[in-house]
Structure formats: structure tokens, C-alpha cells
Design a protein around this nucleic acid. Structure first.
Length: 208
DNA sequence: TAAAAGATCCCCT
DNA sequence: GGGGATCTTTTAT
């Protein structure tokens, strides 16, 4: 599409490896406004993220050490960790830090930028374009991300992360993480203030 | 072998 | 705004 075509032509920078080689709490706000792009032309701007740090974080999948499911999370940074949530929903994370550390950033919401027709097809239940990518499982469905994409190299594709030439917002907002039951006091969720595609504007995590 | 929990979404009121 | 769906992964017995 023209939108993504122009963005690629203006600044097609794939984010380099060292962009990912830092703590999740640093990478998370830096990911805001970056572009998640698929080879078939779907793209979204990241507007909401959450940091999950190493085994010291009781809410992180890496808390109890490596398992079959979270193996990608303990792999090299710059890769996509995709897992199945509640037995139904796929969610996508950006692996960061150092290999073996087990830290990643959950992508919670995107603003659709290109390939909206394909997103609408993939998200038949979305009642409006605002619901296409608002929520971690929704954006995965909209972009066609599933378990087959676990371990994808974000520098090579088929799913890639682009710099876009657009810096993070000058004043990203942080709040507690959503949907977890442990370490709910840590303000490790960041979002672009005022963006309607953010899943929840005032964030408080809900106990189950 | 069994049981419980889970980084959610959707529909209904 | 609230509750049910749904099933994989992990941990306990």
C-alpha cells in the first residue's frame, strides 16, 4: 500500500541487533511508535507495550526457568516470542536483553498503518477498525501471527520491526501491567498518551 | 495421572 | 461493566 510504501521508501531501517540488547524496562518505551510489518503488507505502529524481565519477575514466563514453551524467550534478542494464552489466543513478544536471560516486551496494541483490508478479513469479529489491533491477541490475529511465527528473526522476517524514522513520544506514560496476578505494583506498561488504539487508557491491573 | 492457573476476548445486560 | 468460554502448559500427587 501507499502508506507503508512511503514509510519504507523514506526510512526502511530495520532496527539493528543492539537496539534489542538492553533491559526490557528500557526497550519497552523505546518500542513505542515503531512499526511491526509482515511480508504481505500488513503493518501497525506500536502504541502500547509491557516489560517482562528475567526470572526475578514473578509475572514473567521466565520466572520458573526455561521450558519447552518459553524457549524462544531464553534465546537471542531480536526475535519474536509467540505463546498461546488461555488456550485460545496468540500473543507476541520482542525478546531483548542477553541470550539466556529470559526477558521480553509484550506488544499490547498497534495502530493499523497498512494492509487494513487483510486485517479486517483476519479479524471478522471486530466491530470497527478501532478493534483491529487493540489488545495483544487481537493484533496477533490481525497480522496473522501464530505459533508458527515463534522464533522469527525480527531483523530478517517474515515479520520485521522497522525504525520508521519516528521517535518514541516525548512523554510516554507508564502504569501497572494488565491481566496479571503477581507483581501488579510494578509500573511496567507504557503507552502513547491520547492514542485511541491503546487498549485501556487508565491502567490498573485486574485481579482474576 | 490429575488438577489448576493463565501476559484474553467476546457477548450479554 | 461483568461473567463465561476454552484448552495448553505446568506443577503436584
Amino acid at each position: 500500500m501507499a502508506a507503508i510504501g512511503n514509510a519504507l521508501a523514506r526510512d526502511a531501517s530495520v532496527l539493528p541487533l543492539d537496539f534489542y540488547q538492553r533491559p526490557a524496562t528500557e526497550l519497552a518505551p523505546a518500542l513505542l511508535n515503531k512499526l511491526l510489518v509482515t511480508t504481505d503488507g500488513r503493518a501497525g505502529r506500536i502504541v502500547e507495550v509491557e516489560a517482562y524481565t528475567d526470572s526475578g519477575d514473578p509475572a514473567s514466563h521466565s520466572h520458573r526457568g526455561p521450558t519447552l514453551r518459553n524457549a524462544t524467550m531464553f534465546g537471542p534478542p531480536g526475535h519474536l516470542y509467540v505463546y498461546l494464552s488461555y488456550g485460545i489466543h496468540w500473543c507476541a513478544n520482542v525478546v531483548c536483553g542477553q541470550e539466556g536471560q529470559g526477558t521480553a516486551v509484550l506488544i499490547r496494541a498497534l495502530e493499523p498503518v497498512a494492509g487494513l483490508e487483510r486485517m479486517r478479513e483476519a479479524r471478522g469479529k471486530a466491530r470497527s477498525d478501532l478493534d483491529l489491533c487493540r489488545g495483544p491477541a487481537r493484533l496477533a490475529q490481525a497480522l496473522g501471527i501464530s505459533g508458527e511465527d515463534d522464533g522469527t528473526d525480527l531483523l530478517r522476517g517474515p515479520i520485521r520491526l522497522l525504525g520508521d524514522g519516528c521517535p518514541p513520544p516525548p512523554h510516554p506514560v507508564s502504569s501497572p501491567r494488565i491481566g496479571i496476578t503477581r507483581a501488579t505494583e510494578l509500573p511496567w506498561r507504557w503507552y502513547v498518551p491520547g492514542n485511541p488504539h491503546v487498549s485501556r487508557l487508565s491502567g490498573t491491573s485486574r485481579p482474576r
